[in-house]
């Protein structure tokens, strides 16, 4: 049984439907990529999974329980954690406070000192910058805080929305290296990316989202070898 099982969901903003009859699975221990161009509906999909948007139809099951329509804070409590697009740090709070807030849930709070040490081990820079306001960090450091804040919530499934967005190539490599580390430590990852090559390289499987529909799915290798993907997303 999959860890996350999405069946036939429709999602709309008011009258405008952005996701159509979408189904998708993520198994325990997998890294799954969702790729797709601007406006395909990737962020809307993650927002729906994390409870910020309610699907008008369909089901979302996490650990074999229905979560569609649940409040975001209840979904966080289950260990389904969403690191949003554009980082969305608490700009006027220190790095340490941002990380602390990440461990707000009851489940994560008890372990927060140990988790904080793990986050600092992964991103030593964040320990150095503990007292600095989040808004004064560089883009790469901000992304580290965003991911670290997600890890503070002790995710069973970590959803990352375009973690490489707006970063220099060298930082992109570092971010992906860390995503790989997170996956290797046993956390299941659902990765939304426009950097298709890097994300498929570390994924087991992927889905291609076009105009709110799943256009294609398969193993990472199948997708990378697919001629449509090569021309449309890899630019080969």
């Amino acid at each position: 049984m999959p860890l996350l099982e999405i069946s036939n969901i429709d999602v709309s903003y008011g009258d405008v439907q952005v996701i159509y009859d979408l189904s998708l699975n993520v198994n325990e221990g997998e890294v799954v990529s969702i790729i797709g161009g601007n406006g395909a509906g990737k962020s809307s999909l993650l927002k729906t999974i994390s409870g910020l948007l309610k699907p008008s139809a369909g089901r979302i099951r996490f650990q074999d329980e229905d979560v569609q329509g649940a409040a975001p804070e209840d979904i966080v409590e289950r260990g389904l954690i969403h690191v949003p697009e554009g980082r969305r740090l608490f700009s006027l709070m220190s790095v340490r406070d941002n990380l602390e807030v990440g461990a707000h849930s009851r489940r994560a709070r008890a372990h927060r000192e140990r988790t904080l040490r793990e986050v600092h081990a992964m991103f030593p820079r964040l320990l150095e910058r503990s007292d600095q306001l989040a808004m004064t960090l560089s883009g790469g450091e901000q992304q580290m805080v965003a991911i670290g804040r997600g890890l503070m919530a002790m995710p069973r499934l970590l959803m990352l929305d375009e973690p490489s967005l707006g970063l220099a190539p060298i930082l992109i490599k570092e971010i992906f290296r860390n995503v790989r580390k997170i996956a290797e430590s046993g956390t299941t990852v659902l990765l939304v990316e426009q950097d298709v090559r890097h994300s498929l390289e570390l994924s087991n499987r992927g889905y291609v989202l076009e105009h709110g529909r799943i256009a294609m799915e398969g193993s990472a290798k199948e997708l990378m070898d697919n001629p449509h993907i090569k021309t449309a997303y890899l630019g080969i």
Partner: peptide, 10 residues
């Protein structure tokens, strides 16, 4: 500072 981000923190 950010309601939506806060709700993603639980």
């Amino acid at each position: 500072l950010d309601r939506e981000a806060a709700s993603l923190m639980g």
